[in-house]
Amino acid sequence: MTLIITLLAMLSLLLCAAMSASAADIDLARKSTLEKVIQSGTLRVGLEAGYMPFEMTDKKGNIVGFDVDMVKEMAKAMGVKLELVNTAWDGILPGLMSNKYDLIASGMTVNQERNLKVNFANPYIIVGQTALINKKWANEISSYKDLNNPAYIITSKLGTTGEQAAKRMFPKATYKSFETEDQAMLETLNGKATAMVYDLPMTSIFFAQRGKEADMKFLDKPFTYEPLGWAINKGDPDFLNWLNNFLVQMKNDGRYDRIYSKWFDSNKWLKDIQ
């Protein structure tokens, strides 16, 4: 009899624990950003419109680009409206953490420092750092390793992985930071700096537009591994699961390839950009 009572008590405790865990899971799901987006009817996306071809402003004032087309498909899959929140890069993570938007889709590199503050969905594209060299130093520099020289000045954009790579990999060189990619590239184009270090897509576009004509040297083989991912707030497994499954679907039904080809395999869009 005592054994039966003991077994019943244990079973009761197990049932209570299971019910408690189930209730906690339901509560967590209700608090998910995904649920809030569905209830509000709007997906708010934080980005900085200045990173070609991921997000930029066209001549009509619209924000367009690879990331924009991706989140348009995201909002469509959720059945909600899309709201783009243009944000300065140095405030983009704090903006997410203070719930000014639901996720970041802004060509953001997944790294461990950022991952301490936010969660990332699986990478949607892989890029890396490259270098544009002013023609005055073109014959001296054949590899990115040559840039680690006290005689050289290297530029990049403030707060980016380009800046981090320049400081980490070329400590002997002088580093100059700029608010925008264009300013950093023009400093190098005009001969005031030796090289500009930045992500492959952006350097490729600048080289095609102005660098080739100015006899700049383009070290176009990336010397870092940089996966880009969508950032969301921590503690939200439901939203993370949805984003990862959405990306898998996009990459296997042809939509991802169409968007990629539009922005990376053609430069027809350049004529419409400010």
Rank of each mutant, 00 (worst) to 15 (best):
K117T: 14
K117S: 11
K117H: 14
K117Q: 15
K117D: 08
K117A: 15
V118C: 13
V118Y: 07
V118N: 06
V118S: 09
N119K: 13
F120D: 06
F120E: 05
F120R: 03
A121D: 02
N122H: 06
N122K: 09
N122A: 13
N122Y: 05
N122W: 01
P123R: 00
P123M: 02
P123W: 01
Y124Q: 03
Y124T: 05
Y124S: 00
Y124V: 02
I125M: 03
I125L: 04
I126L: 04
I126R: 03
V127Q: 02
V127M: 05
G128K: 02
G128V: 10
Q129K: 03
Q129S: 15
Q129Y: 01
A131R: 02
A131T: 03
A131G: 12
A131W: 06
L132I: 02
L132D: 02
L132V: 01
I133R: 01
N134K: 02
N134D: 08
K135D: 02
K135C: 01
K135H: 12
K136R: 08
E140C: 01
E140K: 09
E140H: 07
E140M: 07
I141E: 01
I141C: 04
I141T: 04
I141P: 04
S142I: 11
S142D: 09
S142M: 07
S142V: 14
S142W: 03
S142C: 00
S143I: 07
S143V: 09
Y144N: 08
Y144C: 03
Y144Q: 05
Y144R: 00
K145V: 06
D146F: 11
D146T: 13
L147A: 14
L147F: 15
L147N: 13
L147C: 14
N148F: 11
P150R: 11
P150L: 11
P150A: 14
A151T: 15
Y152N: 08
Y152A: 06
Y152K: 06
Y152I: 10
Y152P: 14
Y152H: 08
I153C: 01
I154R: 01
I154F: 02
T155C: 10
S156E: 05
K157M: 15
G159K: 05
G159H: 08
T160L: 05
T160Y: 08
T161G: 07
G162P: 12
G162R: 06
E163V: 15
E163A: 15
Q164P: 01
Q164H: 14
A165M: 11
A165S: 15
